[in-house]
């Protein structure tokens, strides 16, 4: 029993990260109906931002309080990643908004691979895996046979907070309303005085900074390397599709489902079957329920 509770906690931890990244995929899809294949690699860049900043920060202020270190790293990573995402959107996607829809998807695939291979070839980063310096002290609490670390708690709580915040932004603010309006009808939205370009940029920035939260949290718990944009990014993408791409709560749900798949696959099968299980799940879902769990079917208009 303790074993399963422990695993559920681990699954929640991994699932929160997937959910945070999946939100970026789903928001961009919702507003532009475009699969932003570069998002996983944007997440990867965010972990490196967190890595470099926290290393630098701790070198300069070696006795800063953990809270300050954690929050400043988080903010810097969020800001830097948002900037990168907006830059990518302006340079690579915006000129293609009037081109056939698939062009932007191909470009996104190119941008993702470019980021990944650039980070591998770029000397200060390189292909070797790295560790973030400890941002907060790791303390293990044991209840019965179940161990919870302070990092685990921070990951789950911060993710939940961010998800709640995003859900509120999208549902309750003017910006969120503008986003929903554009995703509903992007031709009428500008007629209602909605600055489409600015809202789209904002969506990219928001999605990327949420991915940066995920990136920083991920880096606190695991090693980082330039290839994780593919490994983690694709999993998050599956999460978004499983939950119903374009649907924000679906992305959160999908993230946790994939977290459970990742943690519980090794219980029944060798751990090398993880990718197989995840992608088979995706394939089966697409065959039997193409719109995902929470997605609504869309009729093709002539």
């Amino acid at each position: 029993m303790e074993f399963y509770i422990q695993q559920v906690l681990n699954a929640l931890q991994v699932g929160s990260v997937y959910a945070l990244i999946a939100l970026g995929y789903t928001m961009v899809y919702g507003i532009l109906t475009m699969i932003n294949f570069a998002h996983g690699d944007i997440f990867m860049v965010s972990t490196y931002l967190a890595f470099f900043f926290s290393t630098f920060f701790l070198a300069v202020f070696s006795n800063a309080s953990p809270l300050l270190v954690f929050v400043s790293t988080l903010l810097v990573a969020m800001f830097g990643t948002a900037l990168l995402a907006v830059l990518i959107e302006r340079v690579a996607y915006k000129p293609l908004r009037t081109a056939p829809r698939i062009s932007a998807v191909i470009t996104a695939l190119g941008v993702g691979l470019f980021l990944e291979n650039f980070m591998v070839a770029f000397k200060p980063v390189g292909p070797a895996p790295r560790f973030l310096p400890p941002l907060i002290p790791q303390i293990n609490y044991t209840f019965g046979g179940v161990t919870v670390s302070s990092i685990q708690i921070v990951i789950i709580v911060v993710s939940a907070l961010v998800m709640f915040l995003l859900d509120t932004i999208v549902r309750r603010t003017m910006v969120g309303m503008a986003m929903r309006a554009i995703s509903w009808d992007k031709f009428t939205a500008p007629l209602m005085g909605i600055p489409v370009d600015r809202v789209i940029s904002l969506t990219f920035a928001l999605g990327a900074s949420i991915a940066a939260v995920g990136g920083t949290l991920y880096g606190m718990a695991y090693t980082i390397d330039p290839y994780m944009g593919i490994r983690i990014g694709w999993w998050a993408f599956i999460s978004a599709v499983v939950g119903g791409i374009g649907n924000i709560r679906g992305a959160m749900l999908g993230g946790f489902i994939l977290g459970f798949v990742e943690i519980f696959t090794p219980v029944f099968l060798p751990s090398t079957y993880r990718d197989f299980v995840a992608f088979s799940l995706l394939l089966l879902l697409l065959i039997f329920r193409p719109t995902g769990i929470l997605g609504r079917p869309v009729a093709q208009k002539v």
Binding site: A92, L96, A99, S103, A104, I106, T107, L109, G110, V111, G112, L113, F114, N117, F118, V120, A121, P127
Partner: peptide, 15 residues
């Protein structure tokens, strides 16, 4: 390793 950067870059510039 920089060779691998070229193909994606080509794809972006082409599109």
């Amino acid at each position: 390793e920089w060779r691998l950067v070229v193909a994606p870059l080509m794809l972006i510039l082409l599109m």
